[in-house]
Amino acid sequence: MSFIKTTDGTEIFYKDWGPKDATPIVFHHGWPLSADDWDNQMMFFLEKGFRVIAHDRRGHGRSSQTWTGNDMDTYAADVAELTDALDLKDAIHIGHSTGGGEAVHYVARAKPGRVAKAVIIGAVPPVMVQSDKNPGGLPITAFDELRAAQNANRSQFFHDLAAGPFYGYNRPGAKISEATIHNWWRQGMMGGAKAHYDCIKAFSETDFTDDLKAIDVPVLVMHGTDDQIVPYADSGPLSAKLLKNGTLKSYDGFPHGMCTTHPEVINPDILAFIQG
């Protein structure tokens, strides 16, 4: 297995498939998952001739189960160390959910020539938590409830989240995949409880407004209108407006985990954006 060791000694696991001289695509996973959540997309783009890279965020998956550094600044710094180690140039960065926040935070700080385009999917920017500046956000009590549920029984909590709102399996007529639920649970339970707990604050309270404003490269913002995890109205459309070169693509009735439930729609749309 492939790892890099960051300056603070954290080991970051990553996958790196495809020709080294091909256009690189870097995938940023959501909370509390791992690089494995991108298997469908990685295989799709590998077969299209791209170099595909996905890492496990610190505290998640096969990376070190850190009890410190579980914040957006450190996440982005870890990505910078990974892209430096692999010497990636003109990469496309694709982030889902928390990974969308991580991608935006990194791209806004990336060295010249490292990033060509970005895609954020069901992503947490601009900011999730409700405040005077963000009245449409979710109240802090919603995130307190997530923390309490994780501490009470992380295994049951992760199962229920995957079996319910994450993939829209709680909607009438939903086509439920037990294997998908089990895979989500498997990925979540690989990570560290402390890192997952801290990450709730990182994805809910980080304000990405300045990051979005600072990004110059083209960004595709993809969001399902029935996203029950990162509500549509206070995320995708607002992010697209803040970007200098942003394009919003909405998906009627699609859930938060639409990369898994609707890859036959999402993958070609990403490809068209990359090639456009």
Rank of each mutant, 00 (worst) to 15 (best):
S97A: 01
T6C: 09
A80G: 10
R114F: 01
G246E: 14
L248Y: 14
A123H: 14
S64W: 05
Q65M: 11
G137H: 08
I94P: 03
I12A: 01
P19Y: 01
G246T: 08
A240L: 14
D56V: 13
Q228T: 13
D56H: 13
F158Y: 05
P126M: 03
A272C: 08
S63L: 02
V119C: 07
S64V: 08
P231R: 01
T68P: 07
D87C: 05
S131T: 06
Q65S: 13
G100E: 04
T83F: 12
G69E: 00
H29L: 01
E178W: 07
G101H: 00
F44A: 01
V119H: 05
C259P: 15
S204F: 03
Q187V: 10
K133N: 05
M1Q: 02
G188D: 10
D90T: 00
L138H: 06
L243P: 15
M128I: 02
A116Q: 13
F27A: 04
F203V: 13
T209R: 15
A233V: 07
G113I: 04
G276C: 14
W67D: 15
F143P: 11
E264H: 13
D78G: 02
I12L: 03
T247G: 08
N151F: 06
F45H: 12
D73M: 08
S2W: 00
K194R: 11
D73I: 06
L46D: 02
P139E: 12
K194G: 09
R62K: 10
Y167Q: 06
L238F: 06
V129I: 11
Q41T: 01
I92H: 07
P263H: 07
P268D: 01
S63G: 02
G164L: 10
V119Y: 03
Y232G: 09
H223C: 06
T68S: 13
T74N: 08
H60K: 08
G69C: 02
M258A: 14
N40K: 11
K249E: 15
S34W: 07
N245A: 05
G49Y: 02
I181L: 09
I215T: 10
S97T: 00
D210Q: 15
Q130M: 08
V104L: 04
Y14A: 00
F3P: 08
L33I: 02
K89I: 05
G95D: 15
A272V: 06
D84F: 01
G164R: 09
G99S: 00
L242E: 13
P172L: 03
K20T: 14
E81P: 01
A162S: 14
S239K: 04
P237N: 13
P24M: 00
K20F: 04
G9M: 00
L146R: 04
R154K: 10
W185A: 11
L33A: 02
N40H: 11
Y197F: 14
